[in-house]
Amino acid sequence: MADEGMQSWKTLALGCAMTEPGTSRSFNTGDWRGRQRPVTDREKCIKCGACYILCPDMCYSPDTEAEEEGYWIWNGFYCKGCGICIAECPKDAIEWQDEKEEDKYGQACRT
């Protein structure tokens, strides 16, 4: 096993407590995903926000850089590939798309 994210047992906090707040922000759940990612087709998207609400890892946030407001932007660092957003989107606007390891954390859905 590669030792990415590993820490010597001697340096763990007492009782493996987390002494800093907000560390889940730096926890790479995107690493759990297989070689597919959910990609949104904005032609079909009605901006209902179901993907944003239902994603268990809060991968979707408002896309402030899009020309049109109301769209959601996906974050590959957190997406574990559960497929909930794909199953729940009322317009079937999200689909699996094969991805390469090298652009695993790149943006996937701005069209």
Partner: peptide, 28 residues
């Protein structure tokens, strides 16, 4: 107490120990 739940100095206890952490936590 050496460490405790304290709103003035918040910590989290009893978190998940993923495979990268569990062995080290048990060793400690």
């Amino acid at each position: 107490p050496q460490q405790k739940l304290d709103i003035a100095n918040p910590i989290s206890m009893g978190l998940v120990g993923v495979p990268e952490v569990y062995t080290e936590a048990r060793k400690a």
